[in-house]
């Protein structure tokens, strides 16, 4: 589905991506987890042909995303773009146009016929719960509505791969949960999803597999449960010189007996992906 080999991106003196190798399977929800500046958005921009890689190859459903030479007309890149839907991090809707017009333009850009386009618009607006706002101007919508509209827009041409770049950034907890439900629903319909996030709970809740990315390098790729179980199941947080230091245990009983043996206070919690990331990089995701 998505195949990335030895991908590098260098911006002047900054080596933003270093020898990235990935293989995302069909129907999988793959999360790319890392702190700000790790290279998540750069990867997604390259995978969706918005930025040219410095070296390496990327293919989507077997189509190379890179144009060969000065391609005026149809190319592999254009074919690969047809397979992909993109929800970028920043809101990139036409604010002066209506919800319907934004979706219509997307349909036209992806060469959809009028009847197919209108049918899909009705279907998707109902799917993201925006049917009543069809004629509203985008600038009149709330942040959460705009995010849902962007997801609907990305699904207009029924892509087989959906790229979501921090899809819930800036949203409140309730709206974030609503969008998670929507993402799960999209995956259940067979769409491969590539998600970047710096929200631990988002990756834990949604992802089949997670890649940890730090300073342009992939540290590990595994399922969330495997990544967490490397450390244990339960964690005790204790305060040492203004810093929370976790201690990991394979079960709750072990953690409880440790607490009983110590004369200080702890916070008992389940191990999460943040712990796994912290143990590998020495720093937090957020």
């Amino acid at each position: 589905m998505i195949k990335v080999e030895n991908l590098n991106k260098i911006y002047k003196s900054v080596h933003a991506l270093k020898d990235i190798n990935l293989h995302v399977k069909k129907g999988e929800l793959f999360a790319y987890l890392g702190p700000n500046g790790a290279g998540k958005s750069t990867t997604i921009r390259i995978l969706t042909a918005l930025t040219n890689p410095t070296s390496g190859t990327v293919s989507i459903n077997g189509f190379d995303i890179k144009n060969s030479g000065f391609a005026f007309f149809k190319s592999n890149s254009i074919k690969s773009r047809q397979q992909c839907g993109l929800v970028p991090q920043s809101i990139n809707l036409d604010q002066e146009l209506s919800v319907y017009e934004n979706l219509t333009i997307h349909g036209l850009l992806f060469r959809m016929g009028k009847s197919e386009r209108n049918k899909k618009i009705e279907e998707l607006l109902s799917y993201v719960d925006l049917s009543s706002r069809k004629e509203s101007l985008v600038k009149e919508l709330s942040g959460g509505m705009k995010r849902r509209l962007m997801i609907a827009r990305a699904l207009m041409h029924s892509p087989s791969v959906l790229f979501l770049d921090e899809p819930t950034v800036g949203l409140d907890a309730g709206m974030r949960r609503k969008i998670w439900g929507l993402i799960k629903k999209i995956q259940q319909q067979g769409t491969t999803i590539f998600l970047t996030t710096h929200y631990i709970e988002e990756a834990e809740f949604l992802a089949d597999r997670v890649a940890f990315l730090d300073t342009g390098t992939i540290l590990v790729v595994d399922t969330p449960s495997n990544l967490m179980s490397r450390l244990g199941t339960w964690a005790l947080d204790r305060l040492i010189e203004d810093k929370m230091e976790p201690i990991y245990f394979s079960n709750r009983e072990e953690a409880n007996s440790y607490i009983a043996s110590q004369n200080e206070s702890f916070t008992l919690r389940r191990v999460n992906l943040e712990d796994a990331f912290l143990s590998m990089t020495g720093k937090k995701v957020k």
Binding site: L50, A71, F72, F73, I78, R81, Q82, L86, L109
Partner: peptide, 14 residues
């Protein structure tokens, strides 16, 4: 508005 990205990500030739 970053709308250029929407067009660049679509199968639209330069």
């Amino acid at each position: 508005w970053h709308i250029f990205e929407e067009i660049q990500a679509a199968p639209v030739s330069d």
